[in-house]
Simulated assay, not measured.
Amino acid sequence: MYKEIFIETQVFDLDYNRHVTSRTYENFAYAGRMDLLDSIGLSIHELLKLKYKVIANETTVRFLNQQFAGSKLKVRTSAYQDSSGLIHWNHLIEDKDGKAVCDLKSNSYLMDNKNQPLQVKSLRIDPNNLIDESAGKKIEIDPSQLEYHTLNIQMNTRPEQLTPLTHSIKVPFNDLNIFWTLSSVAVWKFFEEGRFLFFKEVFGIGADMEIDVTTFFMNANIQIFELPEPGTIITMESWIDSIEKIRFYFRQDIRDANGKLLASMRDEQLFVKLSASKPCRVPQEFYDKTKKYRLE
């Protein structure tokens, strides 16, 4: 299946760097997923009537070209479902000139009213017939789409001798979506909060800008094993996987009150010199202050 939607960014989509936030792109991808489901007879109203729900699973995302308010974007969405019921979504977000802005791949389940994965015939692709005519025209399917039955996200396990920085966060009820579950965007928001808390406590909010640098979020791998329950307290564990010249790799785990792992994220942050708008080496101040939360 293949669908396209068009979206224009707004001022309220911007972050502190005045760029469109990472969560906005996931919201655009979510809109693309729901639009595609609607096109095969599974509108929001139909899903709710049947008590079906979409449950997020894994995501890989790359941010390719910064966008600002007023950007006119195209969200190109394709999907197929494997034999386990897992739906593989491919989203390519492009600007008005066709330049790639964000490449986002995710997996999710469509669950029935007994919380079992549903099989959707129109989302199955015959490997011997790699042509999809669902968009009203013949579109050749990339064979690589058929090769990953999960995203197989590889994350570095936190070494036992490394103690992460931890924070407790209450899961708000107001992040519930139409299915009365947390969406992937709500989980992304926890990770974003954890990143800010880490910077605030270890490096200092705004300390990077005082030395004429900032960090850009380049890409991320996200795994959701179990959605947090609203009203509960989760623990955010944060540490640094590695620092490499002009970038660092940040790791976070979300656990429930019993220590059960609910979700993990690994993201790449690029240091940029503000005055030159060019990548720069990781500041020595950052290297020194984060030593406690990474392995040498």
Rank of each mutant, 00 (worst) to 15 (best):
D253P: 00
M265Y: 05
I139W: 01
T235H: 10
D13S: 08
D208W: 01
L42Y: 06
I234P: 00
F248T: 00
Y148S: 12
N156P: 03
Y52I: 03
P172I: 00
V61E: 10
R62K: 15
K72F: 06
S264A: 15
F203I: 10
V20I: 11
V185D: 09
L42Q: 07
V11N: 01
H91C: 05
D82C: 09
D82G: 01
A31Y: 05
R195C: 06
S84V: 03
S184I: 07
I44T: 05
Y109C: 09
F217S: 05
R266K: 06
I222L: 15
W180S: 12
S238M: 06
Q161I: 13
L162P: 09
R124I: 05
E192G: 14
P159M: 10
Y148C: 10
S71M: 13
L48A: 02
Q161M: 12
K189I: 01
D241S: 13
S71P: 01
F196I: 07
S144T: 12
F225D: 04
G98R: 04
G32Y: 00
S275F: 03
L42E: 06
R294S: 05
N156D: 04
I246C: 11
K170Y: 02
R23N: 13
F271C: 04
I93W: 05
L37C: 04
I139K: 07
T290R: 00
P279M: 08
N177E: 07
I234G: 09
I131H: 12
D267I: 07
S275M: 02
E229V: 15
E193N: 14
E237A: 15
D253S: 14
R62A: 15
D103C: 07
M1G: 03
M265L: 13
Q223R: 10
V120G: 05
L162T: 05
E229K: 15
F68M: 14
T235C: 13
N129F: 09
N17W: 00
T77M: 04
D97W: 06
Q116L: 07
I222Y: 03
F68I: 15
K189T: 13
L118T: 08
K105H: 09
K273I: 04
E285Q: 14
T77D: 06
I224V: 11
S242A: 11
R62Y: 13
T60N: 06
S238D: 09
V171G: 03
Q67M: 10
L227H: 00
A31Q: 13
G98H: 05
A220N: 01
A263H: 08
M236F: 03
S134T: 08
A69R: 14
E94T: 15
Y287A: 14
N65Y: 09
F248K: 10
P230F: 07
S106Q: 04
F12C: 12
